[in-house]
Computed example of a mutant assay.
Amino acid sequence: MPEEQQPDDVLHSVENGVSWITLNRPEAMNAVTWDQRERIMALLAAASSDPAIRAVVITATGKGFCAGADLRGSPDTGGERVAGDVARMIRQGAQRFIASVMDCEKPVIAAVNGTAAGIGAHLALACDLVLASESAKFIEVFVRRGLVPDGGGAYLLPRLIGPQRAKELMFFGDSVPAAEAERLGLVNRVVPPEDLDKTAREWAERLAQGPTRAIALTKQLVNASLDADRTTAFAAEATAQEINMTTRDANEGVASFVERRTPSYEGR
């Protein structure tokens, strides 16, 4: 696929309505730097605002998807650390990074080609759909370093696999192979390594042919549902449908049903 030349540590291309974001520091197992995070967040924000982009894939080169955080290049306060500095760094860094994936208005697919550890695991799990190579593995590595999981881990994992399983992964920090991750519900599908890119492309291009705004509103509803009571969730659903019925794609979907033909969605 055609790639932008700068910066080389995050490759980017747009094909058939799909924004491909590729971590490209294979020598470091794609441990993500501050600058890489800023670049990815900017690309996700651009995808949200660009009607020509209708799906996103996040993947990586080499044997690792993302081995965690590489703190080189982080903003330097230039002075003595005071209480609140670490919390501020987490809010402005890891949490903002993961939120940018969840808040992207286009569906985001993770194509996990190898090790996803720490913030790398949370990057994958924040995506709407997760494809994993048979060689992939997921590691809640924080406990191995005596750290609390950050980047939304304690929020994401219980919602995916329940609190007991989440605690098991976070308390022990064991490596979870792709097949076990699929069984637990961390990933949607495991494929042979040679099929990962092809499957991600098929899924993303299928999404890119769909009713983009309806999918965006559905994403928002599902992401908010576990934090809302029934009354709030039902009200949000009704409002989302009200908004959606103003789109061209909703009108096309209804018309195609009445006319007994295949719909042609424009993403608008």
Rank of each mutant, 00 (worst) to 15 (best):
M1P: 12
E3Q: 12
E3L: 15
E4R: 14
Q5M: 10
Q6L: 13
Q6M: 09
P7W: 05
P7E: 09
P7Q: 08
V10M: 11
L11F: 07
H12W: 01
S13T: 12
N16C: 11
G17W: 07
V18S: 12
V18F: 05
S19L: 05
I21Q: 10
I21G: 02
L23Q: 14
L23P: 01
P26H: 08
E27G: 11
M29V: 04
M29A: 12
M29C: 08
M29P: 04
W34L: 05
Q36Y: 04
R37V: 02
E38S: 01
M41H: 03
L43A: 07
A45R: 14
A45D: 14
A47V: 01
A47L: 02
S49L: 08
S49F: 02
P51F: 00
V57S: 07
I58Y: 06
T61A: 14
A67R: 10
A67V: 00
G68Q: 02
G68L: 02
T77V: 13
T77G: 15
E80C: 04
V86D: 11
A87N: 13
I90G: 05
R96A: 12
R96C: 03
F97A: 00
F97H: 08
S100R: 09
V101S: 02
M102Q: 15
D103K: 13
C104R: 10
C104Q: 01
P107H: 05
A111C: 08
V112C: 03
G114D: 00
T115I: 11
A116F: 04
A117S: 15
G118N: 13
G118F: 02
L125P: 03
L125D: 01
C127H: 03
L131C: 06
L131S: 00
A132G: 09
S133T: 06
S135H: 13
V141M: 13
V143L: 06
G146T: 04
L147K: 14
G151V: 00
G151W: 06
L157C: 00
L157A: 00
L160V: 01
P163A: 13
R165F: 06
A166G: 00
L169E: 01
L169V: 00
F172R: 11
S175E: 13
A178P: 02
E180S: 05
A181I: 01
R183K: 15
V187D: 03
R189S: 02
V190T: 05
P192R: 09
P193W: 00
E194T: 05
L196C: 03
T199Y: 00
T199C: 07
R201A: 12
R201C: 06
E202W: 04
W203P: 04
A204R: 07
A208Y: 04
Q209T: 03
Q209R: 14
T212H: 00
T212G: 14
R213E: 13
R213H: 07
R213G: 08
R213K: 10
A214Y: 02
A216N: 09
K219S: 05
Q220F: 01
S225F: 05
L226M: 11
A228W: 08
T231L: 14
F234E: 15
A238Q: 15
T239K: 15
Q241M: 10
E242W: 09
E242Y: 08
R248N: 11
A250Y: 08
N251G: 15
G253C: 07
E259M: 10
T262D: 09
E266Q: 08
E266G: 10
R268F: 09
R268G: 10
